[in-house]
Design a protein around this nucleic acid. Sequence first.
DNA 1: CTCATTGCAAAGGATTTGCACTAAT
DNA 2: ATTAGTGCAAATCCTTTGCAATGAG
Lengths: 157, 157
Amino acid sequence: MIEPFRDYLREHNLPVTAQRLAVAEVVLGSAEHLSAEEVRRELFVKHMAVGTATVYRTLELLVRSGLAVERDFGEGFRRYEPARDVPHHEHLLCTSCGNVHEFRDERLERMTTLIAESSGFVRQRHRLVIYGLCESCQRGSGRQLAPSAVQREATRR
Amino acid sequence: MIEPFRDYLREHNLPVTAQRLAVAEVVLGSAEHLSAEEVRRELFVKHMAVGTATVYRTLELLVRSGLAVERDFGEGFRRYEPARDVPHHEHLLCTSCGNVHEFRDERLERMTTLIAESSGFVRQRHRLVIYGLCESCQRGSGRQLAPSAVQREATRR
DNA sequence: CTCATTGCAAAGGATTTGCACTAAT
DNA sequence: ATTAGTGCAAATCCTTTGCAATGAG
C-alpha cells in the first residue's frame, strides 16, 4: 500500500521518515476523501501524532508522486484521496452529511473538450461536483456531520 | 440596474444605505466575476470606499436577493456575478490569465439529475468548471494575472 | 557527519464577528 | 427615537513558512 510511496521517496533521494509513511498509510489506505485535518486526527487517535505542517507537506508529496489526488469541493478546505487506477471520475456530495460518492461518465471527457474548443479554449481538465441528498439523509437518518462550508451553502436561504 | 436591489431592501424592511447601493452597483453592473477584494478595490478607486465587512455582508444580501450568484472556482476565494436572466451556466477558467468564460449546456441539467438518481441521491445543484487555456494565452499573449490558487494548481508538477 | 525533515509557533489570506459609533426609517 | 448598519480590529479557519532541534542517509 505505501510501498510505492517509499519507492518514490527513495528514487527522489528524499528521506523516508516515519511521519511520511504514517500519513501515506492513512491517505492511501482510506476509501474516503480525507481533509488534512481528518488525516491529522486519525494519526492522533492511532498514537502516531504528526505535526500539522508535516501533514500538509506530506500531502503535497503524495500529490506530486501521483499516488494521491487533491480535491476541492468548495467546502473551504481540500480533500485527498488515493489515486487508484481510475483515470478520472466525478463526485456526488451529500449536502447534509458530507458523504462523498464517486461515479464515472465517459461522456464528460468528450463533452468538456468539445465545449472548450467551441470557445477557443484548449481543455486541460474539468471538475464536476453534484450536490444533493444521499439516501439516508432523504430518510432523515443522516449523520449531520457536514463540514461548515457545505452546511453553510446548503442552509443559506 | 440597482433598482431591483433597492426594491428588495425596501420589501424586506432593510435600510437602503449608500454602501449597499455602491456594492450593488459594482457587482450588478459588472460583466466580470468579481471577488470581494476586487469589489472593495473598485469602490476605493471610485472614492466610495466601503469597509471590508460591509462588502462581505452586502455580497451575502445580493446572493440572498437572488440578484447575484456566488461562484467558487477553487481559487481559495469566492467570486460574484450578476444573476442575469440565464438560469444556469457553466464556466471555463483560463489557468494562465484567470479569465472566465461562460457557456450553457442544457444536457448537463438532465445528465446530473440522472446520475444522482442512479446513486440514490436527490440532485440539488451541480458545479462544472473546465480549466484550460484561452486563445490569447495559447498564443503566448496572455496577461498572466491568474490568482495564486489557479496558478498553483496549474503549475504543480 | 551533513543535509533534509520535523514541529512549534508565527504569519498569511479570505472571511466572519464583537462592539462602539453612526445613520436610516 | 428606534432599530439596524458601518467600520475597525480582533478572531477564525485553512494553509504556509521561519527556524531551532532532530533524525535519515
